[in-house]
Design a protein around this nucleic acid. Structure first.
Lengths: 124, 124
DNA sequence: CGGCATCCACATGGATACTG
DNA sequence: CAGTATCCATGTGGATGCCG
């Protein structure tokens, strides 16, 4: 498991900052990964459209999540039109760079989880 | 952004299950990614040792997290010795397969975040 | 060492209704 | 369409102390 027991010090011993922890605090919220995933695959998306694509999310929670993602510099909000009023949410560079993480999550999910309606082992 | 606008339906339209969402509910908790990361890099680890490696976690929260990870089939707990009492936590196959996700998170963090004490742009 | 018991605070999410 | 306003329930984490 270890790369080299002696040379490579045990992780975070004496370290006060850890990239994994920090990244986790950024994207570890229930809908964040899915929202990013949808924006990655569908490109810039309006609010209600996004609400449709993210199954099960309420407008309040989606609104909260998008605000949080904007604060963290992962998502941009652009007003496209005034009459009728239109906005578009899109990924910033930072946000788009999350793609490997989201993609890895998708792969793992497909390999290790399953749809609830399929006949399977019970858990997940 | 889209792979193929016509052929590939918009994500989760009509779908009732999504691998990204499901994976997020499994590992999106504050310490889960870090715990997995430490187990990946250091191999089987005792409780207190793990507590040392995961900077900032309390024994109660670590205990809760490990229990959750066990329930989800990502971590195994093995009693190594009775006198003195020793246990070891290790990753199951499922847990070890999270490596691409954790690794991607680590890379993204290194590229997009920074240590608090470094002179930098202010945010994160 | 490897936890659990307790208590508490707050973050997060869900339901519902309403608005410009 | 694109949200906001409430209100509430629960999840989640943190602090402290104790135990076999």
């Amino acid at each position: 498991m270890s790369d080299s027991p002696e040379e490579m010090a045990v992780w975070c011993a004496g370290e006060d900052w850890c990239p994994v922890t920090s990244t986790a605090t950024i994207i570890c919220r229930k809908w964040h990964p899915v929202i990013v995933h949808r924006l990655l695959h569908n490109g810039p998306t309006g609010f209600s459209e996004l609400e449709d694509h993210v199954d099960g999310v309420s407008s309040k929670v989606l609104s909260d999540s998008l605000e949080d993602l904007q604060e963290k510099g992962l998502v941009d909000r652009t007003v496209i039109n005034d009459q009728p009023f239109r906005v578009e949410y899109s990924l910033t560079k930072r946000g788009a760079d999350l793609e490997p993480i989201i993609s890895a999550m998708e792969q793992w999910g497909k390999a290790n989880l399953h749809a609830p309606n399929e006949s399977a082992e019970g858990r997940f």
